[in-house]
């Protein structure tokens, strides 16, 4: 009986050793999520993203302003290949006032320098007109917006807005169009921002990385560990005697 149990104790230990190693590593990592910034670090390994079946949307909304291409992919807003901000549900348009690029997206207007540095995210509380439908500019290069309430024009610094119903020289800029072209780089970037390492370690720890069978496997491993503990204690007590 004693020899038989000893053999099974060793076999069981060897069988679950690898899983226990993964459990320990993932457990330690999760205990230090904040310090290791696991929630801020995104998975970039293609094989792991493929394993999760993560892909970027195949279509984007795009509009050209000055020499910059503004793209809304999913809910991520890009200027050329640079991620500017998220999340946005719609891209209404973009304009250039000679100093700044103004992008109307969602309920906000984002102001960028020509170097694509974010100057400000304007909202309704900053005086931005609500329900923007299109972006334009007048002969003095001031940015204008068309809303359900009428048309508005901003000052040169884009600090304040005033009604512009009587201004007749506003040129409405092209509205964004749907595109699948030249968005491969952005799609790759988008894909690499979905999955963070905290999620991966949580899935490794719970077994969900292996799909629905994973948690059952982890339950079995837990039962085996209980069995190992019991058999280990029993074998130790026999040796002490």
């Amino acid at each position: 009986m004693h020899k038989h149990l000893w053999t099974w104790h060793r076999r069981l230990g060897a069988l679950i050793a690898i899983i226990v190693i993964f459990l320990c590593i993932s457990g330690i990592a999760l205990n230090h999520t904040e310090g290791l910034k696991l929630d801020q670090r995104h998975v970039q390994a293609d094989w792991l993203l493929d394993w999760y079946g993560i892909d970027a949307p195949s279509e984007a909304w795009s509009v050209q302003v000055n020499e910059t291409r503004i793209v809304l992919l999913g809910d991520h807003l890009y200027a050329d290949d640079t991620l500017i901000a998220a999340p946005y549900s719609t891209l209404h348009g973009a304009g250039w006032n000679g100093e700044m690029i103004a992008i109307a997206a969602g309920a906000e207007m984002l102001l960028l320098t020509p170097e694509l540095t974010l100057v400000e995210r304007m909202t309704v509380s900053d005086g931005l007109p609500a329900d923007i439908q299109a972006v334009g500019s007048d002969s003095e290069n001031r940015i204008a917006v068309l809303t359900t309430e009428g048309q508005w024009i901003a000052d040169r610094q884009l600090l304040g807005w005033e009604p512009a119903e009587e201004i007749t020289d506003i040129q409405w800029l092209p509205t964004p169009v749907q595109t699948t072209e030249q968005i491969d780089g952005i799609r790759e970037h988008y894909r690499e921002r979905i999955l963070n390492w905290e999620r991966v370690f949580l899935d490794i720890h719970s077994g969900r990385i292996l799909g629905s069978a994973g948690p059952i496997l982890m339950d079995l491993v837990a039962l085996m560990l209980l069995g190992l503990s019991a058999s280990g204690l029993w074998l130790w007590s026999r040796r002490v005697r």
Binding site: Y52, I54, G74, P87, S89, I194, R199, L210, G211, A213
Partner: peptide, 22 residues
């Protein structure tokens, strides 16, 4: 199994904007 994981990932991707906009 890969199919199940893909469903899980699809849920993750779908939940992301929901979480962000809530």
């Amino acid at each position: 199994m890969t199919q199940i994981l893909k469903h899980f990932a699809a849920l993750l991707v779908a939940a992301l904007p929901l979480g962000l906009t809530h």
